[in-house]
Design a protein around this nucleic acid. Structure first.
Lengths: 240, 240
DNA sequence: GAGTCTCCTTTTGGATCCAGATTCGCGGTG
DNA sequence: CACCGCGAATCTGGATCCAAAAGGAGACTC
């Protein structure tokens, strides 16, 4: 039985998830000793993990002062959506002529699931229940699953990697708290998915491309509206 | 007097340049001790630097076996061009309405310089001189300088960062050896730059966008043709 | 003679140790 | 009372040390 992975990589993956998931909020200072105790290792692999996160742009080193979780500005969030819009448009265009009937069937299945979750989520949002975030997380994952089918068919690993890393700047937790205002986004996303699916089914790469681009861009505008209504919402640390 | 930068970052920057510049060829195994001797430090900062390079995708860790400089496949190179095409198109579109007369003047100056170098390079290519690569490097830098004006005006740091990182997969050294076959690329690049400049000057964001996209894509096809004619060209280590 | 087992060298991953930088509190000074 | 300087506590960056994994040469077996 070989190790197959190094501790630095394991730690990096965990921290990565926690940062992009909003569990570790922006501007948090990560103390090396704290992390080394938590993961029960020395500071050496911790620092290597932090270097990786720094290269990914998730944290920033301030020499002799510590590492800080980077906060995403509104501008950066906007840019991330622009990047995703272009790259998902590209992936959709490339994927369209490569779609097999099986792939289309998978898209339908994923989309059906997404549609169901959308309904549930809209119900919950309208009823004003401030329940847990699990439903939202599921919905988000189903949303991504739809796009992931496209990425898989497109066979553009580099594009996929970059787009997914741009996807991460979208802090789920922050937006989740405003889910009551997201009714429009839920409905529109669902409709746009169907439109993309139909364009792909019709074999129109250019239409599918345009729809994919608009889909991401419209998500962007809605998210920005929501964040604006939220204003400078307070944020609990929930960590440290 | 503070340090302002850490050794790991310094080392990472140097290695980064050497890898993207082709000075350290793909598939090279980087021995930690060798690097620590070279930079006169211990292996600790060396490994942190390597972690950063790994996160950037320039090297890959093989647990307990070492780090290897990643070789870019033809498919990856193609993808990198696709990404650049989309993102430079986006940046050009965004930059167009923001261009001031001063910016346009700078574009003209940079483009003039690029045109001169293009002529020189075509002369050298036709004369069959197998001189040093400095002229090619200058030409490449002038080429990038043109696009950099657009990036600066667009004010999309994230887009710029991603596009430039995609730019790096283009190993200058490898293509340089085929410069005699690149006469078309030289001429076409120059003409396309002018077309982009004119579209921006005319304030047509959509035209500029389309031209920028085609510009990058046509570079791609030409590069691929060249690499194909080169076939599986041998490569000297020149290192280690 | 080919294949395999063993031992030794090399190299990596991780732990521990040390020097320098930053922070903070405390007392002195105008 | 505000301000400056000094020293301890804290934390980072880097060096050194150690265990374990991979690789390779030689002996041993069939």
């Amino acid at each position: 039985m070989t190790t197959l992975s190094t501790k630095a990589d394991d730690i990096a993956r965990v921290l990565e998830d926690e940062i992009v998931g909003g569990l570790i909020p922006p501007d948090t200072v990560l103390r090396q000793e704290m992390l080394s105790e938590r993961f029960d290792v020395s500071r050496t692999p911790v620092r290597e993990a932090l270097r990786r996160l720094a290269a990914l742009g998730l944290v920033s080193f301030e020499p002799n002062r510590g590492v800080r979780v980077r906060s995403i500005s509104a501008h950066e969030l906007h840019e991330a959506f622009l990047v995703r819009a272009e790259l998902e448009a590209l992936a959709t265009e490339v994927a369209t002529p490569k779609m097999t009937p099986d792939d289309l069937a998978e898209m339908d299945a994923v989309e059906r699931r997404f549609g169901e979750l959308t309904l549930e989520l809209r119900d919950q949002a309208r009823s004003g229940v401030t329940g847990d975030a699990t439903l939202f997380v599921e919905w988000m994952q189903a949303n991504y699953a739809f796009h992931d089918v496209i990425y898989r068919v497109a066979e553009l690993p580099l594009v996929e990697r970059i787009a997914k890393s741009a996807r991460r700047t979208f802090i789920g937790d922050r937006v989740w708290r405003a889910r009551a205002e997201l009714d429009q986004l839920y409905a529109k996303n669902d409709l746009q998915h169907r439109a993309i699916r139909e364009a792909i089914g019709a074999g129109s790469a250019t239409a599918a491309r345009a729809l994919a681009r608009e889909h991401v861009l419209s998500s962007n505008t809605l998210i920005e509206v929501v964040l604006e209504t939220l204003g400078a919402s307070g944020r609990e640390p929930g960590w440290g």
